[in-house]
Write a protein that binds this DNA or RNA. Structure first.
Lengths: 146, 146
DNA sequence: GGAAATTACATTGTGCACAAGATAATGGCA
DNA sequence: TGCCATTATCTTGTGCACAATGTAATTTCC
């Protein structure tokens, strides 16, 4: 039985806002990554980009954006910084001059090889069980896809 | 029985990263708010600040930051913009000259009264059940508190 | 083949988010 | 009283995140 609270009748307070829990949890997790990724000289979005690049040989910027659901205007300067730091290379596709293909450099590949360790340390830091993670993922994906 | 996947042995791929689902879901929800809050001339963090202010008469910036878990360096310019737009006032506490007390103006109070409607429209847009929301909140808070 | 629509990037401007460092008021405490 | 640690705020710098707009290569359709 659902009993309406004040929140459904009047203006919501912070405690009624599931969106806030999501927003706060996301920032909390990013903050947990910060010191660990800091050792590698990476930010959290940069880490995600390198995770994507690690799974491909060469990939157009557009596809990186599609996987991460990030805008080109976010990725463009981010990739420029990764190139400046020597972790990725960018060059025009010979097949389609509009496309810029991105790939890991040797140095980028080395950094990527340390991500297994990062993954384990984060799992420890967050103290979430395998079961909780699976359940959470299901709920989050329902939100993201809808 | 837990069977280790490649991910636990080698470098993770995007699909192994629960953090990414969280990050993507958070941006997705913020994006759902954007057009609705846009009608009120607000961003999502500004909305959260006004939700907090609506529950108080006067409140120090520090307490707003504690409730939202946001840094002063984030709130300070945000509040300046809200003041510029006539939604909040800021003045030094007479009791403690270090503290800046923030409160809603008449205009800010009017905007706040429309938040019940915003809340309903978002719930619709996200299409999440009451049960799912409760379950999700529990998992998220476990992450945020730990 | 050539105009028009599409596609892939780039740029600019606004607004978070947070680290690091600075300033000013407060509250002990010798 | 004067000194010092603490507290609340502010400022600066870097890096996302995204809307809006621009550019150039490609494709489509006639």
């Amino acid at each position: 039985m659902y009993i309406p609270t004040m929140a459904t009748l009047a203006t919501p307070v912070l405690d009624d806002l599931i969106c806030f829990d999501l927003y706060a949890a996301s920032r909390r997790v990013t903050a947990a990554y910060r010191p660990i990724l800091g050792e590698l000289g990476l930010t959290y979005p940069q880490y995600l980009v390198l995770v994507v690049l690690g799974a491909h040989d060469e990939i157009p910027i557009k596809d990186v954006g599609r996987e991460l659901r990030l805008d080109h205007a976010t990725l463009s300067p981010l990739l420029r910084r990764l190139e400046r730091d020597g972790l990725v290379t960018r060059h025009r596709s010979p097949d389609d001059e509009r496309a810029v293909l991105v790939s890991l450099t040797e140095a980028g590949r080395s950094v990527h090889e340390r991500f297994g360790d990062v993954h384990c340390r984060i799992a420890d830091a967050l103290g979430i069980t395998q079961e909780q993670a699976t359940q959470l993922r299901g709920l989050l994906r329902a939100l993201t896809v809808s």
